[in-house]
Amino acid sequence: MARNIGTLDQAIRLYIALMIAYACYMHLLTGTAGIVLGSWATGMAAITLTGYSPFYHWLGINTCHQV
């Protein structure tokens, strides 16, 4: 798996994932919305750490401009 997520894209994804995780932790997001968004944030964080997005791969998008 080659990286297909650039640095700026990773930073944005991680920021959003952390904000959602914080909202869940502080009980600002509860119930079904908290579970769904918490799970989504976990997935975003995993994608950020690996630098590879299957969705980007399927769409042919590459924001990582490594040579």
Rank of each mutant, 00 (worst) to 15 (best):
Y56G: 14
Q10F: 00
A41K: 05
Y56C: 15
L28K: 15
P54L: 12
Q10C: 02
G43F: 02
L49I: 15
L29V: 06
M19S: 08
G34F: 08
G34W: 09
T7E: 06
M44E: 11
M44Y: 03
S39H: 01
M44F: 05
A11S: 03
C24W: 04
A2C: 00
W58Y: 15
W40R: 00
I20Y: 05
I5L: 13
Y56Q: 13
G43P: 05
L37N: 01
T50W: 08
N4G: 07
G51T: 06
T42I: 13
H57S: 14
A2T: 05
V67S: 13
H27G: 01
A23G: 03
H65L: 15
L28N: 09
Y56R: 15
C24R: 11
L49N: 05
G60D: 13
P54F: 06
N62M: 11
V36R: 01
Y56T: 12
H27D: 13
G43T: 01
Y22M: 09
P54R: 14
L37A: 05
W40S: 12
L49V: 13
N4T: 01
M44W: 08
L29P: 09
G34H: 08
V36I: 14
I35C: 03
A46I: 12
H27M: 10
L59G: 10
H65R: 13
M1Q: 04
L37V: 00
H65K: 14
C24H: 05
A2I: 06
G51E: 04
Y56F: 15
A46D: 04
I61S: 10
T32H: 02
T50I: 12
T63F: 05
Y15K: 01
L28R: 13
